[in-house]
Amino acid sequence: MPIQANEIEDLLRESFPNAQITVEGADGRHFSAEVVDESFRGMNRVQQQRAVYAALKGHMDGAHSELHALALTTRAP
C-alpha cells in the first residue's frame, strides 16, 4: 500500500519534534526528505541517516515495504 508524504513527515516528527522537515514525492513509493535538527550536531552523516531510518519504524524494510526509496538529506542547523 502506498504511503503519502505527510505520513512520512508525521513519522519523522514523532522522533524529531523540533526539526525542520521537508518531504516531497507524489508516486507513493519514491520520496526525498530533508531533516534539519539540533540532535544531529556532533553526528556524522551515517549516524544522522540511521536515526532518520529508525524513526520510519520499518516502513522501508523488505521488498514489499510501503516506502521503496528515500533520497535523504540531514544536517544540524
Rank of each mutant, 00 (worst) to 15 (best):
residue 68 H to T: 00
residue 46 V to F: 10
residue 52 V to R: 09
residue 58 G to Y: 00
residue 76 A to V: 03
residue 7 E to D: 15
residue 12 L to H: 04
residue 36 V to L: 14
residue 42 G to M: 01
residue 12 L to K: 11
residue 65 S to K: 09
residue 14 E to L: 15
residue 51 A to I: 05
residue 68 H to L: 01
residue 31 F to G: 05
residue 8 I to D: 09
residue 35 V to Y: 12
residue 34 E to T: 11
residue 28 G to D: 04
residue 38 E to R: 14
residue 7 E to N: 13
residue 75 R to H: 12
residue 10 D to P: 11
residue 64 H to A: 06
residue 16 F to N: 11
residue 42 G to I: 01
residue 20 Q to V: 12
residue 42 G to T: 02
residue 32 S to L: 07
residue 21 I to G: 07
residue 40 F to L: 04
residue 60 M to A: 00
residue 23 V to M: 11
residue 57 K to V: 09
residue 27 D to G: 06
residue 60 M to V: 02
residue 20 Q to W: 09
residue 31 F to S: 02
residue 14 E to C: 15
residue 12 L to Q: 14
residue 51 A to G: 12
residue 50 R to E: 03
residue 20 Q to R: 14
residue 44 N to L: 02
residue 68 H to G: 00
residue 36 V to M: 10
residue 29 R to L: 03
residue 23 V to P: 14
residue 70 L to A: 10
residue 76 A to Y: 09
residue 57 K to W: 00
residue 51 A to Y: 10
residue 72 L to Y: 06
residue 67 L to K: 03
residue 62 G to V: 01
residue 42 G to L: 01
residue 22 T to V: 14
residue 69 A to V: 00
residue 36 V to H: 12
residue 27 D to M: 02
residue 32 S to P: 07
residue 10 D to I: 09
residue 75 R to W: 02
residue 13 R to P: 05
residue 34 E to N: 00
residue 9 E to S: 12
residue 14 E to V: 15
residue 61 D to T: 09
residue 40 F to P: 01
residue 70 L to V: 06
residue 32 S to G: 15
residue 57 K to R: 15
residue 18 N to D: 15
residue 20 Q to G: 12
residue 59 H to Y: 09
residue 42 G to V: 01
residue 31 F to P: 12
residue 29 R to H: 09
residue 19 A to F: 13
residue 8 I to S: 10
residue 60 M to P: 08
residue 68 H to I: 00
residue 70 L to M: 04
residue 70 L to Q: 02
residue 18 N to Y: 15
residue 43 M to H: 03
residue 12 L to E: 05
residue 31 F to M: 07
residue 61 D to A: 09
residue 55 A to I: 06
residue 23 V to S: 11
residue 8 I to E: 13
residue 22 T to W: 04
residue 23 V to Y: 13
residue 58 G to C: 00
residue 15 S to E: 14
residue 61 D to I: 12
residue 8 I to W: 14
residue 50 R to F: 02
residue 36 V to G: 12
residue 43 M to D: 00
residue 48 Q to V: 03
residue 71 A to R: 07
residue 70 L to F: 02
residue 41 R to T: 15
residue 47 Q to R: 11
residue 40 F to C: 01
residue 10 D to V: 09
residue 38 E to D: 13
residue 25 G to M: 08
residue 65 S to C: 12
residue 69 A to F: 04
residue 27 D to Q: 07
residue 28 G to K: 01
residue 20 Q to P: 08
residue 8 I to H: 14
residue 63 A to H: 04
residue 55 A to T: 04
residue 10 D to L: 11
residue 62 G to A: 02
residue 39 S to A: 10
residue 59 H to K: 13
residue 39 S to C: 10
residue 47 Q to A: 10
residue 53 Y to G: 04
residue 66 E to W: 08
residue 18 N to I: 09
residue 22 T to S: 13
residue 29 R to Q: 14
residue 48 Q to R: 15
residue 42 G to K: 02
residue 48 Q to P: 11
residue 33 A to D: 03
residue 45 R to G: 04
residue 12 L to T: 13
residue 44 N to E: 03
residue 50 R to Y: 08
residue 40 F to V: 05
residue 33 A to R: 08
residue 41 R to G: 10
